[in-house]
């Protein structure tokens, strides 16, 4: 049974909450039941005010939306199956022309079987993807239009965006097809779409914590991070192999401002 304080806190956060504990408390506590009624009345007024302020949606808006969908949509790519850590590791050993900065470490680990096994475990732990990788993938999934852009973004704008997080682009990243701002984790971040020689990559310049770690693959995308002095560079690609390759490329291209 919840007490009056918890009841009121729950109702104030969600006046229409009708869960069993809330109902049970209201049933035996008349002052709180009265409080809930008044709060629900206030909620009705709030909703009316919120709806009235917008006015009616223009009646032709739906038709305009449907009319603009003349072109067939791009076919969504099938999500890449998530690889096990072992499969990912085999990819790294295989190389495939996508050598990463981790490669020397991996080679050393493969020298002996015993050390190799221990190394595999150690690698898997140290290469744990940042929890934020899930957030940036979710962000890209919610912003499907990003891959449609084909603008010609000036290098100075790209440089300015990296400079905000203390980074400097020393070698071309590839063709930057878009640079905009988006909300990620409640903060405004610069979001780029870059056509690199290793494939298409969505980059997020995320202010705040310097994140690092391995690659997370889910929902058809793979994500990883490069730490910067004032935040992180999130790399989101359509495959794990591309994520490693683009990361290696960016680690060569982006330097920290001194």
């Amino acid at each position: 049974m919840i007490d009056c304080k918890k009841f009121r806190a729950q109702k104030l956060a969600d006046p229409m909450c009708r869960d069993a504990a809330v109902k049970a408390h209201a049933a035996h506590c008349p002052p709180c039941a009265q409080y809930a009624v008044k709060l629900e009345q206030f909620e009705q007024k709030l909703r009316c005010a919120a709806v009235d302020a917008c006015g009616d949606m223009p009646p032709d808006l739906c038709e305009r939306i449907l009319a603009q969908l003349g072109q067939p949509p791009a076919t969504g790519s099938e999500p890449a199956p998530r690889k096990s850590w072992f499969a990912a590791l085999l990819d790294k050993f295989g190389g495939g022309g996508t050598g990463t900065w981790f490669a020397p470490t991996m080679g050393a680990m493969a020298m002996t079987l015993v050390l190799g096994i221990a190394g595999l475990i150690a690698f898997n732990l140290s290469n744990e993807p940042s929890p934020m990788a899930r957030s940036v993938i979710a962000h890209v999934v919610s912003e499907p239009g990003i891959f449609e852009f084909n603008e010609d973004v000036p290098a100075s704008a790209v440089q300015a965006a990296f400079a905000q997080l203390g980074g400097r682009v020393e070698e071309s990243l590839g063709q930057v097809r878009h640079l905009g701002v988006c909300y990620v984790e409640g903060k405004l971040a610069h979001h780029l779409l870059v056509q690199t020689p290793d494939g298409e990559a969505s980059l997020v310049l995320l202010p705040g914590e310097a994140l690092e770690g391995g690659v997370l693959s889910e929902k058809g995308f793979s994500a990883t991070f490069i730490p910067l002095p004032k935040g992180s560079l999130g790399i989101i690609t359509r495959s794990e192999r591309e994520a490693h390759a683009v990361k290696a490329r960016l680690e060569r291209s982006v330097r920290v401002e001194s």
């Binding site: 917008c54 808006l61 939306i65 603009q68 949509p73 791009a74 969504g76 999934v141 239009g145």
Partner: peptide, 19 residues
């Protein structure tokens, strides 16, 4: 701006509807 945003949002959603 609200109308434009709704149109833009549906346009982006259409392109990615298969996903």
């Amino acid at each position: 701006l609200a109308q434009d945003l709704v149109q833009e949002a549906f346009s982006a959603a259409w392109k990615a509807y298969d996903s």
